[in-house]
Design a binder for these strands. Structure first.
Lengths: 251, 251
DNA sequence: TACCGCTTGTGAACGCATGCACAAAGTCGG
DNA sequence: CCGACTTTGTGCATGCGTTCACAAGCGGTA
């Protein structure tokens, strides 16, 4: 890493400028873990813990200690050798890296069971994600507030999103509507989308999509159930020559 | 791959036995994609499509064609060179690999907003995952059916799970309750858990946990919003020497 | 001040996953 | 029956992510 940076002649602080430089280089997988560390650290801060070692923190976050240190090294070195990390410092630093210093306005599209649940979270867990707009096609739902936010008709999506500066769109519609909703969000300037519909969305390169697919999650678990069942069977039956010839079964 | 297998002297068919052998070797990432392919293929089958090439399927699934072929090769070669894949054959084969030939009984714990949404899906999307039990601590909820399934008190979790042969447990409780619920599910013999609570669960090695963490998803998106904002700023401002020195910004 | 023990930060090795490129294998038309 | 064309299946190289192992650095102590 060269990490060479010039004279911070911008409106941002030098520290922030340095952050931005690093931000490019953080692996996607590490970003996801940083969010987890942040939650654990916040919990510790509330409990009055002021310092933590990589070993403790990694255990609480369920990862390898070396990996945790490497993840933290991506965002700069803020630990003290021989001591550990200052919880407060780490929390605010991760928050800055993850962009949690600003609020991100969220719009939820599709006020069915899931949409209701999302709207009722009332500002997403962990804060900083106020839900500012709800949309649905069903005219009967329009106007009635859910979780304190009124529902707009989906045709108003562009105006409302622009007006309320929505930066994250959440798609909780039935599958057939998802792509159309996605397109409308994109044309309303939304560049980040969280998709709950079991559909592969087609988007331009400049839009970031993350998907949460319950069916896929269930099927992955199903795969493991089946695998376990098979292993158990081939152990308990044991009257065949199958599954041997040097196969290693994890203990 | 050696793929040498003996005389299938079991109750299962030779084809199934062969599947089980392969199942061990499938990379986790590929399993997730197989579930996606399955959904796309099911849609095609309903539309009357009978054959598909790796190119078409990969595009519909949003992945590289070579990767798709490699994924399919993990589960055995069922395509015809020069032609492509038979949709029906592929569907039933992936279903077998993912263990979807059996039903997997699902229990949902925590009947809040999210729990309601999950219960009301009424058998999970894609089928094969009947929700057979609901649990909550709140005595007021007990007995009242949600989505046609009565709610049991959480203290009954062990008996009910054993009785109804629950193979997948879904945790939709508030964070503080999650670990306790998880422990009870495990002691009721549940080996696969889908966790919606923002908590790192501690489980024995023989239990498979997958987590869906909305806060983390939002924060990853937030990170990308921030990154975009920075890039836009450094382009539009352009009065500093930052962010240059050979840095490649993706087009 | 000099030493000792502890913890960070990171270079280097390893392993997994992705993508390329091509041979093998099949179909279709003549 | 043969040759041209199409598409699969896979060996190989590349890149990313994880893990190991250790030097560098810091606080505490005599």
């Amino acid at each position: 890493m060269v990490s060479q940076r010039g004279e911070g002649e911008t409106t941002t602080t030098p520290a922030e400028a340095a952050d931005k430089e690093r931000a490019r280089a953080i692996p996607e997988a590490a970003v996801a873990r940083l969010a987890v560390y942040l939650r654990v650290l916040s919990g510790m801060a509330e409990s009055g813990v002021t310092a933590v070692s990589s070993e403790e923190l990694s255990q609480a976050a369920g990862v390898n200690a070396a990996k945790l240190r490497k993840d933290l090294s991506y965002i700069g070195s803020y630990g003290t050798r021989g001591v550990g990390y200052d919880v407060e410092v780490l929390v605010s630093h991760i928050e800055r890296i993850l962009g949690l210093t600003r609020n991100h306005s969220v719009a939820v599209v599709g006020i069915g069971n899931l949409g209701h649940a999302l709207a009722n979270y009332g500002g997403f867990p962990g804060r900083g994600f106020p839900v500012t707009a709800l949309f649905d096609v069903d005219a009967d739902l329009v106007g009635i507030p859910v979780g304190g936010i009124p529902v707009n008709h989906i045709d108003e999506i562009t105006e409302v999103c622009l007006e309320r500066e929505v930066s994250i769109g959440v798609i909780a519609t039935p599958p057939p509507a998802a792509q159309s909703v996605c397109d409308r969000l994109v044309s309303a300037g939304v560049q980040c989308i969280l998709n709950f519909a079991p559909v592969v969305l087609q988007v331009p390169d400049n839009v970031e999509v993350r998907k949460v697919d319950l069916a896929v999650e269930m099927q992955i678990l199903s795969f493991h159930v089946a695998r376990r069942a098979d292993e158990a069977a081939s152990v308990s039956v044991g009257n065949n020559g199958l599954g041997v010839d040097g196969m290693v079964i994890r203990p």
